[in-house]
Write a protein that binds this DNA or RNA. Structure first.
Lengths: 236, 236
DNA sequence: CGGGCCGTTGATGGCAGTCAAACCATGTGG
DNA sequence: CCACATGGTTTGACTGCCATCAACGGCCCG
């Protein structure tokens, strides 16, 4: 957990992160808001459910899983990647409600929330961006709700993979040869399925000629058909 | 759609709504933010998916259902009641993503969002409350995600009824003789179940001696057992 | 080389979806 | 006031999807 000063101006994710669309001058001012940068090793957590909330966490590189404890077990609620903001749910109570564990060696930027609130009272662009990030999280979660309530298992897996693909593309990474950072069990927990069902769904999609699956290596062969199967309209 | 000036200072919901915990002086200032009050008749909508977003909508009295179009059908995403804030998801894109239809004759207060943003740059308490409302919506939705992914049909129905009960109690209404404003089909859409399954689950819970059900009249006989069945821990 | 973890595949059972019919409350018009 | 239509709810029989239990196989790492 090395602590070094983060510089948003040098960050590859600044366009998908909080300081999006800023002028160089604004960017410099924003840099002052970042408390520290931390390296998180694979398997380590940034915070755990129950921790006191003081800072939002921006993912600078790598990827995480967030999960809530429920009935002794864990339910995965998302797989945030670079540019995402963690801890938005903790604002309401001041307590973290989920745990965030790194799926690979990652870097995060800590943003003290009281500092952020003060700054966003001064700077309209920051206020707007923060509101948008909060609102976007609501939209994202609702997408999951629709998946869980309306789709069959192989459709959910298809939707998950398409979604992952979209996020990777937005981060200029290859979608043609994805490497899943999470296990079948974690995908299943996220999608409300058992790990065996996730596995079966993937082989099913492979048999349809939409995917090539080799353990954690997934290649999307026919993305259009995959999206259609998942019930995505032309939109998105 | 009568338009009269709303007065938060006279509103019964002001403690669960945006202007919560305000001094009389602050309350007066807040009153100035409310654009107008509107009466919405049962079956009418406040906004529909695709509408341009300009205002948040606070429910003053009555109840609504919010739903997103999906594959030609509708998926119910919530049943907001008095004190709730509608349209939080629209902030991210500036477009309404769901429709809000009144389940009974209701009243709402329109809050222009640009006005609200300007005011919350001046008033810290407003900023905090707005952030909390946004964050709380994330938490609420995540609860639903956990239900959908982890619970059986009768557990989901039990959780739904307990949740409804909690909200009614917070609004000082009776929980012992609830009248459901929504149909079985709407409950099913919300919980990711078919209407027949909702009906069967209710009779099942009745046979267990936890409920008394007569069409839309539901009486909770053993709330503790119902909560236990739904997987609620002692918390909440 | 061996062990453990993860992923795949198979057989079986149970829960919820589907199709269908009956029942009930409400409201409307004769 | 009653007959009737209508929409919502309940109940039944059957089907199908996913969970469960179990065994096997591949990969990584000590």
């Amino acid at each position: 957990m090395a602590a070094t000063k983060a510089l948003c101006s040098t960050c590859l994710q600044r366009e998908t992160c909080l300081p999006s669309g800023l002028s160089p001058a604004e960017l410099e001012r924003f840099d002052a808001l970042v408390e520290q940068r931390r390296d998180i090793r694979r398997g380590d957590s940034v915070f755990r459910a129950g921790d006191a909330f003081t800072s939002l966490v921006a993912v600078r590189s790598g990827s995480f899983k967030t999960s809530v404890p429920y009935e002794g077990r864990e339910r995965v609620t998302g797989f945030p990647m670079a540019g995402a903001l963690l801890g938005l749910d903790a604002i309401s109570t001041g307590q973290q409600r989920c745990s965030a564990v790194a799926l690979e060696d990652s870097q995060v930027c800590m943003l003290r929330f009281d500092t952020l609130e003060r700054a966003s009272r001064k700077w309209q662009w920051l206020q707007r961006t923060l509101h948008r990030m909060l609102s976007r999280e609501i939209v994202r979660q609702r997408g999951l709700i629709v998946w869980l309530g309306a789709l069959q298992s192989h459709q959910r897996v298809a939707a998950f993979l398409c979604d992952l693909c979209t996020h990777l593309r937005a981060r200029r990474q290859s979608c043609k040869a994805m490497v899943l950072r999470m296990s079948r069990a974690e995908i299943g927990s996220y999608l409300g399925l058992k790990l065996e069902t996730v596995s079966r769904s993937m082989t099913h999609l492979q048999q349809l000629g939409l995917l090539e699956v080799q353990h954690r290596r997934v290649q999307i062969v026919d993305e259009k058909a995959l999206r259609a199967l998942a019930g995505f309209a032309a939109e998105r």
